[in-house]
Design a binder for these strands. Structure first.
Lengths: 213, 213
DNA sequence: CCGTATCCGCTCAGATACTG
DNA sequence: CAGTATCTGAGCGGATACGG
């Protein structure tokens, strides 16, 4: 550790020594969505070697960022309060990275947890506050998400359920969120496919989730 | 690049592919303070190997985060507008890491640039807005900084100058900023040494720069 | 099956020396 | 001063194997 030390005393250096290693913040990202089992983490980080996942979990546990907790007969990993304080970091990073996103490369997948955090990143609480409660059932890449907006509160859950608008989209959803494409145009171009509910609500979705470049 | 790819499509993954490598965010941190020459960057990152510094600069230049710019006969590196948008990320990371700071290890140094960013992190614009303009000359570790607060604006410059309060402190300044130690107590314990001006102003400094655990 | 440990090959980081 | 070149070793990536 001393050999791989940044040799400086300061907030950012300290933070990077705790979560600056490869994969660490991605594990935190997924745990921000909720407690996860080892295998769930591995599934959400498809290219992570199992030994690295095991090491990171141990390191971050030792750093007080996460803990192992028994949850009805199985072990899950969950963030400690201090670990949860990384949320602003992860969201800021996501907002910044989102602007640099191009089209996905062939082998890049979309996981439910990463999409959930991206939606949280793009969520405009101030805009949503003035809108009626709305539920969206979104199929995005490989992820099925039930997105409920109620005032300035956002809840994203995996799976399906009753919704005011159901739609499916590929990674082109990015263009809707960035404002590059309007809702009408997104439907017309086939970027978004409305599966049920009132298609007008896609406009509302786009104004609720927005991250301009 | 494809082999070392995270294999996911999302904002955070993208961000980490651009600035997730070792040392990258520390370079950004220093450039957030101002344009810097190669040698200045190397001096502010004492343990960075020169080849790594050179690689990171090239990578981040290719990613549109920074650029080389001629500045009166010498080349400096400066952030692009997109690179400057990393400021919220760096500040959030600094705020989080600051809370985990313990006492410095023997070989950990304090650089002017890292201290400048840490002060920006701890700056309470809302508190400062209600205070009269104040200039502090602070000697912190190896860094001499002139800190000027005027309303909700903060300016930190290297070097010395006229100030309402001049003081010197070691890394124990952390205890003052975290509220672990009051201003009076910090002076009494020798954590802070007042070199000039009205010692009452240290109280004001502590309320202006505050990051609670 | 879930959670690890253990192999090996390889890339990248770390240290030092060197050049325009 | 501003990098480049080279070597070594640590950590990552990938596969496989092991224990509950």
């Amino acid at each position: 550790m001393a050999a791989r030390d940044y040799g400086q005393y300061g907030g950012i250096t300290q933070a990077l020594e705790l979560v600056g290693e490869r994969w660490a913040l991605l594990i935190v990202r997924d745990l921000l969505v909720g407690p996860r089992r080892y295998g769930e983490l591995a599934a959400g980080l498809p290219r992570i070697p199992s030994n690295i996942l095991a090491s990171r979990l141990k390191e971050m546990q030792a750093a007080g960022i996460l803990r192992r907790a028994p949850h009805s007969r199985v072990i899950v990993y969950e963030l400690t309060p201090y670990g949860r304080e990384l949320e602003p970091v992860v969201l800021a990073l996501g907002a910044w990275g989102f602007k640099a996103l191009g089209d996905p490369r062939e082998e890049q997948i979309i996981t439910p947890d990463s999409m959930t955090i991206d939606l949280r990143t793009a969520f405009r609480a101030d805009v949503a506050a003035n809108l009626p409660p709305t539920a969206y059932a979104a199929r995005l890449g490989g992820a099925e998400l039930l997105v409920r907006v109620d005032g300035s509160a956002l809840d994203v859950a995996r799976g399906n359920g009753p919704a005011d608008l159901a739609f499916a989209a590929g990674p082109g959803i990015r263009r809707l969120i960035s404002g590059e494409l309007g809702a009408e145009r997104a439907i017309a171009d086939g970027v978004v496919e409305v599966l049920g509910g009132s298609r007008d609500l896609l406009e509302r979705f786009a104004s609720t989730f927005h991250l301009a470049a």
